[in-house]
Computed example of a mutant assay.
Amino acid sequence: MRAFEIDPRLDKDTVAVGKLGLCDLRLMNDRRWPWLILVPQRAGVTELHDLSPLDQTMLIFEADLVAKALKSLVKADKINVGALGNMVPMLHLHVIARRAGDPNWPGPVWGFGKADPYPPEEAEGFLADIRRAILPA
């Protein structure tokens, strides 16, 4: 059985936040939207139905935990959750905080403009806030 490894594109586009019970939690390196990604730590999984029923339940539990914390942390108007996988086939779940008036509101975030990476000090501050809000101490 092969070991879990993060897809190279996800690794390039995101910053590691930490590990949950099932998922590797990552921050999309695009400061236009507070955007977290949950990646189930299971090798070869490309679809939700590829997960065991227990892992499916855990993914939804962790997505709910992340969505609530992110919404509260950034005072979002709406949380968008999606699993597309057209560009990166590895199963991963996007949890995106949206606010009225943010770039491309109310349209989708995908394919809109060019990513605006976090400056290192801003990323570290936001990562610390996320870790306090989501990860167990």
Rank of each mutant, 00 (worst) to 15 (best):
L51K: 10
V88R: 12
P8C: 07
A63S: 14
P40T: 06
M58Y: 07
I60P: 00
H92S: 14
G85T: 09
G21W: 01
P108T: 15
R98C: 06
K71A: 15
A63R: 09
P103F: 06
A16V: 12
V15N: 05
N29M: 01
R32F: 01
V39Q: 03
M1R: 07
P117C: 09
A43Q: 10
L135H: 00
L22V: 07
L93P: 03
E47V: 00
F112I: 10
A69R: 15
A100P: 05
I130V: 15
P136F: 00
D30R: 01
D102S: 03
L84T: 08
M87W: 05
D129R: 02
M58A: 11
I134Y: 08
D55M: 08
E5V: 14
D116V: 15
D64G: 15
P136W: 01
A133S: 13
I6Q: 07
L135G: 09
G18W: 09
P108E: 10
A3N: 12
M87P: 02
L54Y: 13
V66R: 13
I130N: 07
A83W: 11
D129P: 02
A3C: 02
V17N: 03
I60S: 03
K19D: 13
T46N: 02
A115D: 12
L135I: 02
T14H: 04
A97H: 02
V95M: 02
A115H: 05
P40G: 11
K19H: 12
R42Q: 14
V15L: 12
M90C: 08
K71V: 04
D24S: 00
M87Q: 13
A63H: 01
P34K: 11
K12T: 03
K78F: 11
M87C: 06
C23K: 00
M1H: 06
D129L: 06
L48M: 15
R98N: 06
L36Q: 03
M90E: 13
L51T: 08
A67T: 05
F61P: 06
G101L: 12
R131V: 00
Q41P: 00
D55L: 06
H49M: 13
M90P: 04
A115P: 14
D50K: 09
W110H: 14
L65A: 15
P8I: 08
R26C: 00
I79P: 05
A43T: 09
L25G: 00
L36N: 00
P103L: 09
V109S: 11
V95C: 06
H92R: 05
W33G: 00
G101F: 06
E47Q: 09
L84G: 08
V45N: 01
G21E: 04
A115C: 04
R2W: 02
K78P: 11
N80V: 06
K78Q: 13
G125L: 08
P119S: 11
L51Y: 12
N80A: 11
H49P: 08
A16R: 14
Q41K: 03
R99M: 11
A100G: 11
P89A: 15
I134R: 00
A67L: 07
S52M: 05
L54H: 15
R32M: 02
G113E: 10
